[in-house]
Design a binder for these strands. Structure first.
Lengths: 286, 286
DNA sequence: CATATATTATACCGTCAGTACAAAAAATGC
DNA sequence: GCATTTTTTGTACTGACGGTATAATATATG
């Protein structure tokens, strides 16, 4: 990405955080980043497009850092999940994302709306997958409910705890409290067997292109799972598991699929597993 | 309220629901309600003021219906609470409030923001008070946490259940599922004794004017409680309890305090309790 | 040095919320 | 029924907004 363009993104981000998205005019951005209107519309086709660019940058950085937390750790260890949630708070607070997200979600711009709600669903799916690793296959029927409720509790607790202790806010405490409640809820639904929403819904909600063949995801997930098992009890297990998860996540995302990154991950894995074992996975790249 | 003004409120509400708040121009409202711009700005000082007027109307009607559900019922019976939550869903869906609320909450108009967040806090407080009646004094330390988490779970579950079953959405099921989770959480925090936020915070958050004397609320609540006890085991108990709760709620709200309604409720109560017993309560009216 | 690309300045469009104000209409008081 | 006040109307206006158009200028590239 162009340095200049990146600079515009940065200043715009600052302005949006300070004044809000709608309250920041294009002229403001022009003034503060010292570019002309022509250049702006050469970079971004609209104000909304700029906003999405901002989101994408932060999002990519966050997801990368989030995956780094898994390196060398047991993915079923809930303490890792806690660390990841703490990172989320840190990222959100640092770049003041949440108010921006929510301002935009109800902005009557369908493109922007879809962008944000896709992101939220992606986040939900990620929580779901993590719960799958943490709580295991037996709890699967309750994991979508759990992901929804945990997200809800977590965000609300954060909001009100911040309202209460604005200066001395303690996000770590909120994370731990929320996770403890999650554990209680999991125990409870496991015992009562109550299910609100079946986890298969996540596939229906997954953005566009894979909707038709649900088996695509299933096959892919199974493929990844088997490779994960394969890599157990070998050296560098966690590193490879993380790579596999990364590939899964990347391939499941229809938009902005970054094939070249997957390609590189695949070749790393080939050194470990041998080319033959990776062949089926490679076929998903086409 | 003026008939004409009410008519503008109604048509504007319809338009906001159809097209969204920001996407509806003043001109639209003028055309559809057949008034001139001059008249509009005679009624409402701004578009935002109109929106607040819409909210107030619906809110008042909802709170009235919600209190009616308590008539003749035991306030500690959770089934009553469930019915009230179902009413909330019904009201919100009927007038499509939630999208409007959320659109507005991030609109960079501080007045509007305060209005909405005051309303949300009021709602939170109401849930807290109801939990107090349902779970009793012993659970008090956990009731603010519970109110926050229940609200969060409830709204999120509603959202995603609707996303899943758009046409055949079943709010009653969501209410019951959410309440069951609430019960599990209450049991859990009762056992572990974990508290995130002390319920006294609600007083700090209560809009403006009573912040200074926290004892005001305490005294008032005690006064009401003792009168409630007084009315037990008399004919029409529930009716009087409802009246007392209504007065409490009304007096705790600093803005738009409708003294004349409280006045009328008080005189009804005086017929029951005698003038002397009501004297202390009456002093809060000044 | 010549060509292509990126950037600038400026004028412009339609839309919006909100204001100003004089004329007309309606309600009110006597 | 008439005079005064209040409400309503129509219209023209303001300033800000997002976005477009374009010709001139600067910068990079081969």
């Amino acid at each position: 990405m162009n340095d200049r363009k990146q600079h515009v993104i940065n200043t715009a981000h600052k302005l949006f955080v300070e004044k809000g998205f709608q309250a920041t005019s294009i002229q403001d951005i022009l003034d503060y980043s010292s570019i002309s209107k022509g250049t702006f519309y050469n970079y971004f086709s609209s104000k909304n497009e700029l906003l999405m660019a901002i989101f994408r940058v932060i999002q990519k950085k966050f997801e990368h850092e989030r995956n780094e937390l898994l390196i060398g750790k047991d993915p079923s260890d809930i303490e890792v999940f806690i660390k990841q949630m703490e990172l989320q708070v840190k990222t959100n607070r640092a770049s003041n994302l949440i108010p921006l997200y929510e301002e935009v979600l109800f902005l009557n711009d369908s493109e922007l709306k879809k962008f944000i709600s896709d992101f939220q669903l992606r986040m939900l799916r990620w929580v779901y997958e993590r719960f799958h690793e943490i709580f295991g296959e037996s709890m699967k029927p309750y994991l979508l409910d759990a992901a929804i409720m945990f997200t809800a509790i977590f965000h609300h607790n954060l909001k009100y705890e911040r309202m209460a202790n604005s200066l001395k806010s303690n996000p770590e405490r909120v994370v731990r409290y929320s996770v403890n409640r999650l554990l209680a809820l999991m125990k409870n639904v496991g015992e009562t067997g109550e299910q609100l929403l079946p986890p298969e819904l996540l596939d229906d909600w997954s953005p566009s292109c894979h909707k038709k063949d649900k088996t695509y995801q299933e096959k892919l997930t199974l493929e990844i799972m088997s490779l994960k098992k394969e890599s157990m009890n070998r050296p560098d297990t966690v590193k490879y598991i993380e790579l596999l998860d990364f590939i899964l996540e990347e391939l499941l995302q229809p938009n902005n699929k970054r094939n070249f990154v997957v390609e590189s991950a695949l070749s790393t894995l080939e050194e470990h597993f041998g080319k033959a074992k990776l062949q089926p996975l490679r076929s998903y790249l086409k």
